[in-house]
Write a protein that binds this DNA or RNA. Structure first.
Lengths: 237, 237
DNA sequence: CACTGTGAATGCATTCACAGCG
DNA sequence: CGCTGTGAATGCATTCACAGTG
């Protein structure tokens, strides 16, 4: 319960500024683990225990939490339920849902529509569009596929918060623009191409081929010391 | 054509050591863009042009290339074809294919089996397994689904290089171990859980729910200055 | 004493600034 | 010039080391 934070005032209303990008990603990871622990009736958890199950370091975790305040008890660890509740609020997923639109109902798009992990965490598909006339009008996962020409309109109408792009590269930028035009401010893109978005829109690209291909590099160039993200034991005797 | 590299000798046979992790990921990105340019008969390309189309900076690209040698011509840029050939060799995808095994033929698994981006870049699915008796024996994308109990065996038999995991969290670690037991040294995991692997195995996890959820943070905490990965224009008047 | 919280040190990656080449 | 290649400076993230607390 430190009473004077020297120069931490600089935290703007809604902190945001100081928080490392990576930390935000990990927040979601923490949240999932805490949900698990909660289900298992676990009351308290230490940063070390969390680190162990998530493949991180304890300091990393304590520092991540610290960007948002002091949640822990010295010598005890963290109250699972309390921490969970705090983090859901910080992440913005506390007691609410988010509306999602899917552009492109191909193999990957269909898989995402069916992905339980999304619904579990409060992401609801409200719009799905495709250009294929045979698909338009079909119902998948309880959602009727609309025409791609309707995208911007539907997105606005349904108050969509987040857009998922699973269309071929040729149409990805167009679809992206339409999502933004419809008011979307966060986009998860699976098309293997760089998309231009205004600074106010948050874009994240998951490039499956790149993920796979970059793994190959390490197969072809095995490191002398056997590496990994964890202990590399370099300085040891 | 610098004649003496002061202390760059430290590059071990097969460089690997010095190369930033992020750079390796980008390598694959460069390669795809160069393939595109090649198809369009473009002869030369500058780091700035590449930067523009990939959403990176020119210096970043030049430095990335430099980890592997000098490929460019001052005042001219890079020879597209030559650079492409060099990078395919460095990445380890030059004139060869890689055998892939898929564990878990659910929605996502099926989508990956069908994903053209993989085949295009020389990744061939040779094994697919599932635990569901109704799926075993079925053929999908020309591949017959085997029983999960066969995994390690098939992987060894088919000389699989890379494993993809799209099974539920409960079985992910087991499947992972079996892949490794079968001789796999690179794994792309889609199960939303941390997997333990020996240091000699390269693991990458794509966590779809985390990708989506972490986007929400930025919706809830909009930054004062409108941010983005590109020009933030902070210091400007 | 087992744990959190955090300055200070280190390590990794990007950007700046510019020498040098075609 | 236009562009590459690269030391030096900066910025971002992790790790170390330890003071402080229940």
């Amino acid at each position: 319960m430190t009473n004077a934070l020297p120069f931490k005032e600089r935290r703007a209303p809604g902190f945001r500024t100081q928080v490392p990008e990576v930390c935000v990603t990990r927040l979601s990871l923490y949240l999932r683990e805490l949900t698990r622990l909660n289900r298992q009736q676990v009351r308290m958890v230490s940063s070390r225990q969390l680190a162990e199950s998530l493949g991180l370091t304890d300091v990393q975790i304590r520092r991540d939490f610290n960007y948002f305040g002091q949640f822990g008890t010295s010598g005890r660890g963290y109250d699972v339920r309390k921490l969970h509740d705090r983090l859901t609020k910080i992440l913005g997923v506390a007691g609410r849902t988010w509306n999602v639109a899917l552009a492109g109902v191909g193999h990957l798009g269909s898989a995402l529509l069916a992905y339980r992990g999304f619904r579990e965490r409060g992401f609801l598909f409200r719009v799905a569009v495709d250009t294929d006339p045979r698909k338009i009008g079909q119902t998948i996962q309880g959602l009727t596929i609309a025409s791609a020409s309707q995208l911007a309109h539907r997105v606005r109408q349904q108050q969509i918060h987040i857009g998922l792009i699973t269309v071929p590269v040729e149409s990805a930028q167009t679809v992206c623009d339409q999502l933004i035009q419809g008011g979307v401010r966060a986009i998860l893109n699976f098309a293997p191409i760089h998309l231009d978005v205004p600074a106010s829109v948050h874009l994240r690209t998951v490039d499956l081929a790149v993920e796979l291909e970059s793994l190959v590099f390490y197969l072809v160039h095995p490191s002398p010391d056997t590496d990994s993200r964890k202990n590399s034991m370099v300085n040891g005797a």
